[in-house]
Amino acid sequence: MKKSFYILGFVTFFILGIGAMFEFLTWPYRGVIVFIGFLFLNFGLIPTYFYQKYQQCQS
């Protein structure tokens, strides 16, 4: 579970970094890439983090 959290975190921040680069260079589809990065962050990484913390409190 911890390994998947790290992989999801890397992918999320990689996508956000690419989106930021596209923003600075004003390339097309920059808004879409940043939006996808925030979707990964809000619906993938943060719930996984809190689920891990919940599992740690249970044991």
Results as ranks from 00 to 15, higher is better:
35 F>N: 10
4 S>Y: 05
17 G>M: 07
50 F>G: 00
17 G>I: 08
39 L>Y: 13
51 Y>K: 15
41 L>V: 03
56 Q>V: 13
44 G>A: 10
32 V>L: 08
47 P>Y: 01
27 W>D: 12
25 L>K: 11
47 P>I: 00
44 G>V: 10
53 K>L: 10
57 C>K: 08
52 Q>T: 06
52 Q>I: 12
8 L>G: 06
4 S>T: 10
2 K>S: 05
53 K>F: 02
20 A>V: 12
41 L>S: 10
40 F>S: 15
5 F>K: 02
27 W>Y: 10
33 I>A: 02
40 F>M: 11
50 F>S: 00
29 Y>P: 09
12 T>P: 01
28 P>L: 12
23 E>D: 11
32 V>H: 14
44 G>I: 15
6 Y>P: 01
10 F>V: 01
13 F>H: 06
6 Y>D: 02
51 Y>T: 07
53 K>E: 10
56 Q>L: 13
6 Y>M: 04
48 T>G: 02
52 Q>K: 03
2 K>R: 14
25 L>C: 07
56 Q>Y: 08
34 V>C: 09
45 L>S: 03
43 F>C: 07
34 V>L: 14
5 F>S: 00
21 M>V: 14
27 W>V: 14
33 I>L: 00
1 M>S: 13
24 F>P: 01
47 P>W: 00
49 Y>M: 05
14 F>V: 07
49 Y>T: 03
12 T>C: 08
45 L>R: 04
9 G>I: 01
26 T>Q: 11
11 V>P: 09
50 F>P: 01
10 F>T: 01
38 F>Y: 12
19 G>D: 01
51 Y>S: 11
44 G>P: 05
32 V>N: 07
9 G>P: 03
29 Y>F: 14
14 F>Q: 03
39 L>W: 12
30 R>E: 02
32 V>T: 07
55 Q>A: 14
37 G>P: 00
29 Y>N: 15
59 S>K: 15
13 F>Q: 07
25 L>P: 13
6 Y>E: 15
3 K>N: 14
18 I>E: 12
31 G>V: 04
29 Y>V: 05
56 Q>G: 03
22 F>H: 05
13 F>L: 11
24 F>Q: 11
43 F>I: 07
22 F>V: 03
15 I>F: 05
55 Q>L: 10
19 G>L: 01
3 K>T: 09
36 I>S: 08
2 K>D: 06
42 N>W: 11
31 G>I: 05
37 G>N: 01
48 T>A: 09
38 F>C: 15
41 L>H: 07
30 R>A: 07
15 I>T: 14
37 G>H: 00
24 F>R: 03
42 N>F: 10
33 I>P: 00
57 C>R: 12
44 G>E: 11
50 F>H: 03
30 R>G: 02
55 Q>F: 15
38 F>M: 07
39 L>D: 15
8 L>M: 06
17 G>E: 08
29 Y>D: 08
51 Y>V: 07
45 L>C: 05
32 V>W: 06
35 F>H: 11
27 W>M: 06
12 T>K: 07
7 I>E: 00
54 Y>T: 04
55 Q>D: 12
40 F>Y: 14
28 P>H: 08
58 Q>K: 14
24 F>C: 02
28 P>Y: 13
22 F>C: 03
11 V>L: 08
